[in-house]
């Protein structure tokens, strides 16, 4: 029964070790899928490469449907899954800043580290920028505190917000994903660019 750490009360170091292995697996997969290339990530914004959308959306719906099924068979306790609390203002503003950083740098934080570990210089500069941003946030927090903590809605789930059952919401999201994938493929054809990496 999951989560694993609840049933067998692992000592802390085993928890950390499991986290390390999951992290290595995640990083390796990101790198192998080509996510350490900023061109691939930026392609999402220009529409010539929508791998990012497909991978992350697929991951989300597989996890969503999988956790529902595991919970149905009594193998996973969904009540123990952490739901991120929702700060409305902070989410919107943070989302815009994150998106801007994403398109300018060509990485999201996870793929940035993935690219850093294979020695990309732009990723190193990107991560330095990220750390500077974190430093700036921490130092100026007292000034932006009201902005960051305003409009607190608590841990909220979209299905509860819509008032539909988690299962129905999963179905809707899957349908939306399939439709989006289809649109993405059309966009890829429309905005296609020659693959410059193959010339290198």
């Amino acid at each position: 029964m999951g989560p694993l750490s609840i049933i067998s009360e692992f000592p802390e170091w085993i928890n950390l070790l499991i986290a390390l292995f999951i992290g290595i697996g995640f990083g390796y997969t990101l790198e192998q899928a080509g996510f350490s290339s900023s061109r691939k990530l930026a392609g999402m914004f220009y529409g010539y490469d929508t791998t990012v959308l497909k991978v992350f959306f697929t991951a989300a719906i597989v996890a969503l449907a999988g956790s529902q099924l595991l919970s149905f068979f009594g193998l996973l306790n969904l009540k123990l899954v952490f739901v991120n609390p929702w700060y409305v203002n902070a989410s919107i503003i943070g989302g815009i800043i994150m998106g801007a950083g994403f398109i300018m740098g060509g990485y999201c934080p996870g793929t940035g580290i993935s690219a850093l570990s294979i020695g990309k210089i732009d990723a190193m500069i990107y991560m330095l920028g990220g750390m500077f941003g974190a430093f700036l946030f921490a130092e100026t927090f007292p000034f932006i505190q009201t902005l960051a903590t305003d409009n607190y809605e608590g841990p909220m789930r979209i299905d509860e917000w819509f008032g539909v059952s988690p299962g129905l919401f999963t179905l809707l999201l899957i349908l939306a994903a399939v439709a989006l994938f289809w649109i993405a493929e059309i966009a890829e054809k429309k905005f296609s660019r020659t693959d410059i990496t193959s010339d290198l």
Partner: peptide, 8 residues
Amino acid sequence: LVGIGLIV
């Protein structure tokens, strides 16, 4: 995916 979605 849609099949599993329907089941869920």
